[in-house]
Amino acid sequence: MRESVSGTRGSFGRPRALATTARTTLLLLACLAMAAPFLWMAATSLMGQLEVFSSGGRLLPETPLWSNYPDALTAQPFARYFLNSLVFATAVVAGQVATATTAGYAFARLEFPGRDRIFMLFLATMMVPAVIVLIPRFLMIDALGWIDSYQGLVSTELVSVWGIFLMRQYFRTVPRELEDAARVDGAGPLRIFWSVALPLAKPAVATLALFAFIDAWKNFLWPLLVTRSMEMRVVEVGIAAFHSTYEINWPYQMAAGVVAVLPIALLFLFTQRYFVRGIQLEGIR
């Protein structure tokens, strides 16, 4: 055992070390290239309004102008935008988790006629471009008088077929004997779902919630269509509006951008593994 370890180590010759260094360098460069726009965004957000146009073309601000942040964020009601985004994303997460776990469980574990066909029908909607349903959804929300309201923003986004698929796949991995045991213990379907299946599916629920949150936060087109007043705008729409209002005030725009990117970046930092799991679940079927 020991011999084989030292043997492997011995085979690490110089060329391999070189390859590792080259690889690390390449990777670092790639990361830098990917991160550069964000770094530039942060740098610009601290520059003076005219400084950005100075002929020198500096990379870093002469003196960080922190006041850009409060100034930019009060130029438009960004606090309200954030609140709206938060309400929107939270409601979407709650809705999608509720609908996807129940429907996913039904498709994975409950028996009813036509189950697999209905599931295929659900899946088929993933093929449909969102833009097709955009117009009728807008007209429906308009007819309901829900334009420019939370319920108008949220109601169409409460179910995710991808989420149902994810939960179904996960519930199928929960051992059937556990549910049998619960049935013999006298638990009804709802109790089994709530006390046995759902607690065991926590990782998948976390993944689903995360993706639902990010997707809702990123959603631009739908909020753009159904919100009108400043009070109902979400961050994405707010930044777009801010962009057209303060067209050449780049530091302000970058400050707003940093504030929009930061929460998601932090969220990602702490929940990486759920992200990766979700993508992997999706990628390898």
Binding site: E177, L178, A181, R183, V184, V196
Partner: peptide, 16 residues
Amino acid sequence: PGDRDVAMVFQSYALY
């Protein structure tokens, strides 16, 4: 099953 007054021990034990 829960109304039948039976208890069952499973091969895999099926502990929660």
